[in-house]
Design a binder for these strands. Structure first.
Ligand SMILES: [Mn+2]
Ligand SMILES: [Mn+2]
Length: 628
DNA sequence: ACATTATTCG
DNA sequence: TTCACACTATCCT
DNA sequence: GATAGTGTGTCTCGAATAATGTGA
């Protein structure tokens, strides 16, 4: 068992060191995100229940005052708030998904509505919690009363199973450690084991059934398994269009923790347009988990859904996963399989991967073909330089002549800064050094992608949140649903044009400042509220010429997804001179990344002040490598 | 006993 | 619970 | 120049309680 445990530990540690915290080795379903309440508020605006999301200025101010004095006890008056929200979701689903609801779901909704209040409430409470297994004694809710009484009709319906067999792993999640030790009559030494270790030490020896029977006999407690959990998950997916938003979304929005732009989504839009699409989503989700769990990539490939014809965003999601599967194949020395995937994969980057595989496999003709194909595809534009590098390597091999590429040189300079004491970031060190050494009145900020992209987001707020049909279907989206789909910009051509048009006068400043106040805190895919304060904003508007802002906006609009990154680390302002420069900091041994170089070249070719700052440490005792 | 971490709830 | 980005170290030519 | 591996912020909550680990 120690062998099993150490194997498991090593595997978790080396292969996926990141996900360490989440699962105990034995627990299943850690990814399943089974928690959270059942709530919803979409209908609220229609029902006139509250005025939270709408007019931000007046209502949010009016709400903030009592919130501050009442402190942490905000205004959820109804103790069945979670049930109300769940009911609203159900009716929203009946309304929007009437044609797609399966018989089982239809029946669920009808049966649910016919239940007594305590039963309804208990079901929602259970659906909210993390596990789908419960000890009856742990289900205590004042507003529900006896959970056994409330559960009876749910057992009747088969939504709760009180006779369910459970596995050893489940028993371990159900019982506390001290309870387990008592149950097992374990030796003193076992008490010092960690719970997962205890589990593994038991696994080989212990037949599960007798153990459980013993336990049932001893304490006679009821165990409930929520059989309706999967169905509730599917309803949640249909409503949100994703798995990462949970039932708690509703309360948190009501409490003002999450804030979303209010958009009229009263149309008929929804995330999915057929049952098949929902199935595909769930299938993709399972495959992604399998990939995460290190399953055989070729096996996952066989489990993948076919290409989705009638949904761009789903197909993109599928392509992205295909790409990741292919990457995994490459890592497993299955370059041939990977190349096959890339050949028909529309995810950006596929063409380059194919070219590199062929180059490495000494197939210059195929490599060349992949490069040339990639160079013609708009979605592969970010890789253009890398295609050209591959091509020039191929040329060198065949013709023996290196091809030099003329490039717009990016200005750079070097500093020798003191190494920061407690290992602060190189960007921070450079910022401090430059601030201290600047004799003038310049001000520096470490902004990376946040500042300019936020300015874009504020300026183009109307366009981004334009009520295009299908873009918004529930009030908890942090952006339009088609944000990453082809044609996102084109569908809002007039709105973006009008936003950029404001740059020809001083009007853009009004728009940005207005939205900064008016929309403050509202989720947007472009605006990083934390990074923006009034002073930074004012300085930026003073020092960035409108024409430069326009260039940046146009750059982002070229590829709203990909061109959001790559902006330099630092910005330096000279407010008196209405002047600025952008500085990308590079520590010793670091180089410009591809997207950074693309953006910097874009800027220099338009005569915008950008430069690269190479940092070396003052107290460098042993230079790891010789200086250039 | 205490400190740390996970879960719940609004 | 993600996922993408940025940075680092290493190998290769 | 390419690649693998690592770290980090984030899809922003905070207070209260339960469970677990650790030391005496
Ligand atoms: Mn950076
Ligand atoms: Mn940098």
């Amino acid at each position: 068992m120690t062998i099993i445990w150490s194997y498991f530990g090593a595997r978790l540690g080396s292969v996926r060191s990141k996900s360490r915290g989440s699962p105990q080795p034995g627990t299943i379903g850690y990814h399943r995100c089974r928690n959270r309440l059942a709530q919803m508020q979409e209908g609220d605006t229609r029902a006139g229940l509250r005025g939270n999301a709408p007019g931000l200025l007046q209502t949010s101010l009016m709400r903030l005052a009592p919130l501050k004095t009442e402190a942490a006890r905000p205004m959820l008056t109804d103790r069945y708030y979670y049930l109300n929200n769940f009911r609203l979701v159900l009716s929203w689903l009946e309304d929007r998904y009437g044609d797609l609801l399966e018989e089982e779901q239809r029946r669920f909704i009808a049966d649910f509505n016919a239940l007594a209040l305590p039963a309804q409430a208990l079901l929602v409470r259970m659906a909210t919690r993390k596990s789908d297994l419960f000890r009856a004694s742990k289900l205590n809710y004042e507003e529900i009363g006896s959970s056994e009484a409330a559960a009876a009709p749910l057992i009747e319906l088969g939504w709760i199973d009180d006779q369910s067999p459970i596995t050893l792993d489940e028993l371990f999640t159900l019982l506390r450690k001290d309870e387990l030790l008592r149950l097992l009559d374990a030796p003193r030494a076992a008490a010092t084991l960690h719970k997962p270790a205890l589990l593994e030490s038991l696994r080989p020896a212990c037949r599960e059934l007798p153990l459980l029977q013993t336990w049932y006999a001893q304490c006679g407690e009821k165990i409930y398994r929520l059989r309706a959990a999967a169905l509730c998950e599917r309803l949640r997916l249909m409503y949100f269009g994703n798995f990462h938003q949970t039932w708690s979304e509703f309360v948190l929005a009501d409490l003002g923790v999450f804030r979303y732009e209010r958009i009229d989504c009263s149309g008929n839009s929804r995330a999915f347009h057929s049952r098949e699409q929902i199935d595909v989503f769930q299938q993709l989700y399972r495959c992604r988990e399998r990939l995460h769990d290190d399953a055989d990539p070729e096996q996952i490939l066989r489990e993948m859904p076919q290409a989705v014809q009638d949904s761009d965003w789903l197909e993109q999601r599928r392509a992205k996963l295909m790409f990741r599967i292919a990457r995994r194949c490459e890592q497993r020395q299955k370059a041939g399989v990977a190349a096959g995937i890339y050949a028909s994969c529309a995810h950006p980057g596929s063409a380059l991967r194919a070219a590199l595989i062929h180059e490495r496999a000494q197939e210059p003709a195929k490599a060349r073909a992949a490069c040339i194909a990639g160079l013609q595809m708009p979605r592969e534009a970010p890789d253009r330089d890398r295609f050209e590098r591959v091509l020039s390597r191929l040329d060198r091999k065949t013709h023996g002549r290196p091809v030099a590429r003329a490039r717009n040189p990016i200005p750079d300079f070097a500093i020798i800064a003191p190494r920061p004491v407690p290992a602060a970031s190189v960007e921070q060190a450079a910022l401090e050094f430059l601030s201290a050494s600047a004799a003038d009145s310049s001000r520096l900020y470490y902004v990376e992608n946040t500042l300019i992209v936020s300015l874009f987001g504020l300026l183009c707020w109307e366009a981004i949140f334009a009520p295009i049909p299908g873009a918004f279907f529930h009030p908890y989206q942090h952006g339009p649903a088609d944000l990453h789909s082809l044609g996102f910009v084109e569908r809002r051509g007039a709105q973006f044009a009008s936003a950029l048009d404001s740059l020809s006068s001083e009007r853009y400043k009004e728009i940005i400042l207005h939205n900064h106040l008016e929309k403050a805190g509202i989720q947007s895919p472009f605006v990083a509220w934390r990074a923006l304060d009034q002073e930074l904003l004012n300085t930026a508007l003073e020092c960035f010429p409108a024409s430069h802002l326009r260039h940046w906006c146009e750059w982002i609009l070229l590829d709203a997804h990909g061109n959001r990154a790559g902006f330099p680390d630092l910005v330096q302002f000279w407010p008196g001179e209405r002047r600025y420069r952008l500085i990308e900091v590079k520590g010793p041994g670091d180089r410009l990344q591809e997207n950074q170089r693309r953006l910097l070249e874009y800027c220099t070719s338009r005569e915008m002040p950008v430069s690269v700052c190479h940092v070396r440490w003052k107290d460098q005792v042993t230079p790891a490598r010789a200086d250039p």
